[in-house]
Nucleic acid binder design. Structure first.
Length: 465
RNA sequence: GCCGAGAUAACAUAGCGGCUAUGUGGGGGCCUGCAGAGCCUCAUACGGGAGUUCAAAUCUCCCUCUCGGCUCCA
């Protein structure tokens, strides 16, 4: 199967082919390191985590880079306010980011470049842009001249002339054109600064991403991702700068995720309507949060609300319950033919096909519900060990990509399992005597301890809750 | 104003010209001593209007409405 992606650059669904061989360079804009990550950041991280996992499953040799922006207004404001060095602030929030995303089952990227560690390369890139005539110095600052390039607006479909007509940006005297953007800024009092040929100051936001992505992934690479709000101007400017520097196509496929909304607004720091990952994880399992995020196609916005999260919890529990029952049934399943293997195999094919359609996790999840139903039906009849194993394999493929299941089997608990066997044995005798009051009491009291008993037609199952 | 994404049953989501959509919730049934879980089944859909086609939720055009972006931003 060929992977298809919807490329923001063309607006089209395109077959995905690496520039050469099976190497895939993937760059995603990470966070600004001045505060805890919120659910919007989680959506982005989980989205691209799943995309990366699917690419790896398809056999691509993926190099995944997520950057940290630590030279930016908020970070600088914060470091001044707290009176701590920028580095300390950066370290703190990089640590928090890894903690939060780790809990959400996001696999680590290969490289996490930090803007402030790349000052030499950034300055060199700005010098080169000046040399090539794409940038100019003005009062100690350096600006990119958007009239010098042909590719203004290729990503967001804008034309410079139209932008100028409807311009509502205040014109800065130092700029030749309102849409020119800053590559190097003068320092302000108290701000951290770096030496440069133009002034003591700091780089603009956009050039940081261009430099870091090309340093680790080469002058042309396959995938660049981020949230839709970054399309203009951030990613647009990255393209202009990078292609001006190299005369090559910067990125082949641009992928943009829909934003996390709260009611009618997008979730953001500036609107103060955000829910941090830490807060949400107080009330919901990380698997539930992932399921919630992946239950909608990544291009679409998601409305954040408690009802939706609760619903995600119930829906996920349905599949997890099937998996629990499957694991329990494997304990003492008889040997025999794997007559379920075909069903398990075609389920994987459906799942992979959904993922190949621009990472359609929603459709992939629908296929899991279908398979789950098949497994439940199968479990009601005569089972064989090899059939159950093939079903388990399918769940493992699901989890390799989505990471939303728990596989530990309480039946494997060396102390608890034999103990539960005894309790259940005795309770079965009580039930045989139709002493329902006592049987229910055992069940109720176990539940108070956090162990749930389920009487099915043929056996008794238990699990921790 | 410009650019982009949308409008699918009670709600949330898939659907990329023909094939009983998925979950939550609701009705009915089966299984169960009961509970839970599970299985079967039913109802409620494609924003409005034209067109193309043997065939449209899907393609084209028009209209209405929603959301996002337009140099803080995942």
């Amino acid at each position: 199967m060929t992977l298809k992606v919807q490329n923001t650059l063309t607006g089209q669904f395109e077959e995905f082919h690496p520039i050469q061989g099976n190497k895939v360079g993937m760059y995603v804009c990470g966070i600004n390191t001045y505060d805890d990550s919120h659910m919007g950041h989680a959506k982005s991280a989980v989205t691209f985590d799943v995309i990366r996992r699917h690419l790896v499953r398809k056999g691509y040799d993926v190099t995944y880079v997520i950057n940290f922006t630590d030279i930016e207004d908020h970070c600088i404001e914060r470091t001044i306010k707290l009176g701590i060095p920028l580095e300390e602030l950066t370290e703190k929030y990089i640590g928090e980011y890894h903690t939060d995303m780790g809990k959400l089952g996001v696999k680590k990227a290969d490289i996490y470049p930090v803007a402030s560690h790349h000052m030499t390369e950034i300055i060199a890139a700005i010098e080169k842009l000046i040399d090539k005539g794409f940038a100019y110095e003005s009062g100690g600052e350096v600006y990119f001249d958007v009239t010098k390039v042909e590719n203004f607006g290729v990503l967001s479909n804008r034309k410079l002339e139209e932008m100028q007509a409807g311009a509502r940006v205040a014109v800065d005297d130092r700029k030749k054109n309102p849409w020119d953007f800053v590559l190097w800024k003068n320092k302000k009092p108290e701000e951290p600064f770096w030496e440069s040929p133009w002034s003591e100051g700091r780089p603009g936001w956009h050039i940081e991403c261009s430099v870091m992505s090309m340093k680790y992934l080469g002058e042309s690479f396959e995938l660049h991702g981020g949230g839709t709000e970054l399309v203009f101007p951030h990613h647009e400017n990255e393209i202009m700068q990078s292609e001006a520097l190299t005369d090559k196509q910067f990125v082949k496929y641009w992928l943009h995720g829909g934003l996390m909304n709260v009611g009618d607004d997008k979730m953001s720091k500036s609107l103060c309507n955000f829910f941090t990952i830490k807060d949400v994880l107080k009330d919901y399992d990380p698997q539930v949060v992932r399921f919630f995020l992946l239950n909608t196609h990544y291009k679409k916005p998601i409305d954040f609300n408690q009802k939706a999260l609760a619903e995600a919890g119930q829906a996920l529990a349905r599949i997890q319950n099937t998996l629990d029952n499957l694991l329990a049934a494997m304990e003492n399943a008889p040997e025999g033919d794997g007559d379920f293997a075909e069903v398990a195999k075609s389920a994987i094919e459906k799942f992979d096909a959904a993922m190949d359609e621009d990472f359609n996790t929603r459709d992939a999840i629908a296929s899991i519900f279908d398979f789950s139903k098949e497994v439940n039906k199968y479990l009601e009849g005569q089972v064989t060990k090899s059939s159950l194993e093939s079903a388990l394999e399918t769940f493992k493929v699901y989890d390799e990509i989505l990471s939303i299941f728990q596989f530990e089997n309480d039946a494997g608990d060396h102390m608890l399992a034999p103990l539960m066997d005894i309790i259940i044995d005795i309770r079965q005798k009580v039930r045989a005597d139709k002493n329902w009051a006592l049987a229910d009491e055992i069940r109720d009291r176990l539940k108070e301890l956090g162990i749930e008993i389920q009487d099915t037609g043929v056996s008794v199952k238990w699990k921790r809750i």
